[in-house]
């Protein structure tokens, strides 16, 4: 069974149709890249999958492990295994990163019928994963994303992913605002999470990220739907030719 199956998804914001019939099947253990010009609905798709309020799905459906997620709240989707790495991770003054991470881990544990994580176990877990991602201990004490550089925010998001171990992760333009070193660290973090049953949807404008996170399938997204799909070579073709053909076609 597919991990994610999107069927003829139509959606609008304030009465304006953004998604115009998206079909996408993602098998377990695969990495799909979604590429396309700006402003065509890529982020809308990621927001709708993760349950962000403010979007109206007018037609079609999204299945997670065969189950329609339409009625699930964003937190239920997260606990069921959907993770969104934000294009712009949000700053939350006054909430220590470690407090936030613990709350997120415990939310998932409750969902799984487990008790709260032991304080020592939590510290060990977080410090270990943080070190792998080059996140300093003092960043964990600081408020969530406050005063973090662009690269630090993205690394913090990947740390959350590493701790929550989702089944399906969407990376929404994770490469935007990253220098080459940060890009490598973030990509290695993602690659280390690739397993036979975990899948990724990598949304990006550029081919650059895909030379670090090599996809199994590449989709071209234009005019509110997927207009072409292919292998990794499609990303290179887009890099060479640009999106001009697709923009005019859409």
């Amino acid at each position: 069974m597919a991990l994610i199956e999107i069927q003829n998804l139509h959606a609008s914001v304030d009465g304006k149709e953004i998604l115009k019939g998206v079909d996408l099947v993602i098998e377990p253990g695969t990495v799909h890249a979604l590429m396309g010009p700006n402003g065509t609905g890529k982020s809308t798709l990621s927001n709708i999958i993760s349950g962000r309020p403010g979007y109206q799905v007018t037609e079609g459906r999204i299945l997670l492990n065969g189950e329609d997620i339409a009625d699930m709240e964003p937190d239920q989707r997260a606990n069921a295994g959907i993770f969104l790495a934000f294009q712009y991770p949000v700053e939350i003054p006054g909430v220590a990163s470690s407090t936030f991470l613990k709350a997120a881990i415990n939310a998932k544990r409750r969902f799984q019928g487990l008790g709260e994580i032991d304080a020592m176990e939590f510290l060990k877990l977080v410090k270990g994963k943080a070190k792998e991602l080059g996140i300093r201990d003092d960043m964990l004490k600081r408020p969530v994303n406050v005063g973090f550089s662009g690269g630090e925010k993205k690394r913090a998001d990947i740390l959350q992913m590493a701790l929550l171990q989702p089944q399906f992760a969407i990376l929404d333009e994770t490469d935007s605002g990253l220098d080459i070193d940060a890009l490598r660290v973030v990509s290695e973090g993602v690659n280390s999470l690739r397993t036979a049953d975990r899948s990724f949807l990598v949304i990006t404008h550029y081919q650059r990220l895909l030379s670090y996170i090599v996809p199994d399938v590449v989709h071209v997204f234009a005019g509110g739907k997927i207009v072409r799909s292919g292998g990794p070579e499609l990303a290179e073709e887009l890099e060479a030719k640009g999106y001009a053909d697709y923009v005019s076609a859409a």
Partner: peptide, 21 residues
């Protein structure tokens, strides 16, 4: 939404934001 996308239910997320404020 950021907190809810990390699995915190609405009441918990709201409280955490108020507390942080």
């Amino acid at each position: 939404f950021y907190l809810r996308a990390r699995g915190l239910d609405e009441a918990t997320a709201r409280d955490l934001l108020i507390e942080g404020f």
